[in-house]
């Protein structure tokens, strides 16, 4: 169980983002285009970041394959979240997910204390999700 802990954290994060996708999709008529652009930027970046960091912490010997997988996942997530709104939000989410996915395995490879960093990253992810809920409810 301890061997696969980072993959389990990644799985729970991706499930959380999928639930968030369903939530945003249900309320997409209420969300203005500027908020949609920011949602696609932030969530594409977060999906790419968490995929890259947790995969490189779990399998440190496959740098190239993990970079490709994280870039593709970030691009796909940014494009999915942006495609709820319009084409420009899709482009913005795609380019941000690509940049974050290319950068994230490098960040994960230089970490010296992975558990502490994981806790801090989860706190920031939940903070961003809380701000997003507030923004969607206010709009």
């Amino acid at each position: 169980m301890r061997d696969l802990s980072f993959v389990l954290i990644l799985y729970s994060n991706l499930a959380l983002f999928a639930l968030l996708y369903v939530y945003v999709r249900r309320r997409r008529k209420l969300i203005s285009i500027h908020l949609g652009m920011n949602i696609s930027m932030a969530l594409g970046g977060l999906v790419g970041l968490s995929t890259g960091i947790f995969l490189i912490l779990q399998y440190p010997f496959h740098f190239t394959a993990i970079t490709m997988a994280a870039a593709l996942t970030g691009m796909g997530a940014g494009a999915l979240f942006g495609a709820l709104f319009d084409y420009q939000a899709m482009l913005t989410g795609l380019i941000n997910g690509m940049m974050m996915g290319l950068m994230a395995p490098m960040l994960g490879a230089i970490l010296t204390d992975p558990y502490f960093f994981t806790v801090i990253l989860e706190v920031f992810i939940f903070l961003i999700i809380a701000v997003l809920f507030a923004a969607v409810k206010r709009s």
């Binding site: 482009l91 380019i95 690509m98």
Partner: peptide, 13 residues
């Protein structure tokens, strides 16, 4: 603005 930021970030990266 969207086109400028997207194209510039991809090309320079």
């Amino acid at each position: 603005a969207t086109i400028t930021s997207t194209a510039t970030m991809g090309i320079t990266l």
